[in-house]
Design a protein around this nucleic acid. Structure first.
Lengths: 146, 146
DNA sequence: GCAGCTTGGTTGTCGCGTCAACCACTCGGC
DNA sequence: GCCGAGTGGTTGACGCGACAACCAAGCTGC
C-alpha cells in the first residue's frame, strides 16, 4: 500500500533474490542439455513419468505434479513425442496415457547422474547446512498462498 | 564424480530451491502485468533506461546491465518500439540510442509503485531480517563463477 | 592499401509458454 | 429425455529467448 519506492537496500535484496534462482537454474539446465540434449522441462517430465508412474501416467496427473497447465503440457508432449521420448496412448476414449519410450528411458538414465552432480556442484556444495535449512524454510514461507 | 543419485532429502532441497524463485518471480511479474500491461522484462528495460541513463542509453550498455545478449535485447526492443514504449535513434552510424518515450515513461511511473508493493508483499514482508541476510549471502555465494 | 580482427547491431529459425477457443465425454438435476 | 456444468485434452496465435549467421564500421599491422 504505502506508495514508497524501494530503497536501495531493498532493491539490492530483490536483485540478489532474482539472480540466485536464475543463475543456478540456468547452470543446471545447461549441464543437462549439453550432456544429453534434454531441457530441464524434458527432464522433469521424464523423471516424473518414471518415478511417480512406473513409466506411464495420465496427462492431467502429470500436469498437476509439474505445476503446469494442461495446454502447456499438451504442447510440450507433442514436441517430445516427435523426438520419440514419449508416446501417447488412448486408454479409453477421453483419457490419454503418456508412456515413456525406450529412448526416453535411456535419455533419462543418462541425464540423472548429470543432474545430481550439477545440483551438488552448483547448489549443495556451496552452502552450509544452516543456509540450506534456511532456504527450505524460506521456500515454504514464500510458497504459501498469500 | 560420485554417480550417486540424489537422496530424497537432497531432492526436497532442490525442489524447494526451484519453487522459491519461480513462485515469487511469477507473482511479481503478474502483478505488474495485470496493472500496467508491462512484462517483468519490459519493466527492467524501462527502469534501467530511466535510472541509469536519464532516459536514453546505448543498446549495448543496456544489454550489459540487464545481463542479456544483444540479440535478445534487439528483439525485445523491436517489440517495445511497436508498442511505442521506446524509440531508437541512430546517433552516429553504428551507434543506436534507445530513448524512453512519453508513453514509456508514463507506464514506468505507473508500474513502479506496483512493483515495490508486490516485492514487499511477496518477499520482504514474509521473511525475518535474519532470513533476508542469509538470502543475500547465499545469492553472492551462488553467483560466483565456479 | 588492404587483410584481418573486434565491436555494435539485425535477422531468421525454431523451441517454449500463455491465453482463449474449442471438442468430446460424463454426470447431475429436472 | 435433455440441458447445463464440469473434466480431459487439443489447437492456433502470438510474444518470448537462444543460437547462429550476417552486415557494417572502425582499428590494427604489414
Amino acid at each position: 500500500m504505502s506508495g514508497k519506492p524501494l530503497s536501495p537496500q531493498e532493491l539490492r535484496i530483490w536483485h540478489a533474490f532474482k539472480m540466485m534462482g536464475e543463475d543456478v537454474l540456468e547452470r543446471v539446465g545447461r549441464d543437462i542439455s549439453d550432456a544429453t540434449g534434454l531441457s530441464g522441462a524434458d527432464f522433469g517430465v521424464l523423471s516424473r513419468l518414471a518415478d511417480l508412474g512406473k513409466g506411464q501416467m495420465r496427462q492431467q496427473v502429470l500436469a498437476q505434479s509439474l505445476g503446469w497447465d494442461k495446454s502447456r503440457l499438451s504442447h510440450h508432449l507433442t514436441r517430445m513425442q516427435q523426438r520419440q521420448l514419449i508416446e501417447r496412448q488412448e486408454a479409453d476414449q477421453r483419457v490419454v496415457l503418456v508412456v515413456l519410450t525406450k529412448q526416453g528411458k535411456a535419455k533419462l538414465d543418462a541425464a540423472r547422474p548429470i543432474h545430481a552432480e550439477s545440483i551438488r556442484r552448483n547448489l549443495l556444495a556451496r552452502l552450509s547446512q544452516q543456509q540450506i535449512e534456511t532456504i527450505v524454510r524460506v521456500s515454504n514461507l514464500l510458497g504459501e498462498d498469500v
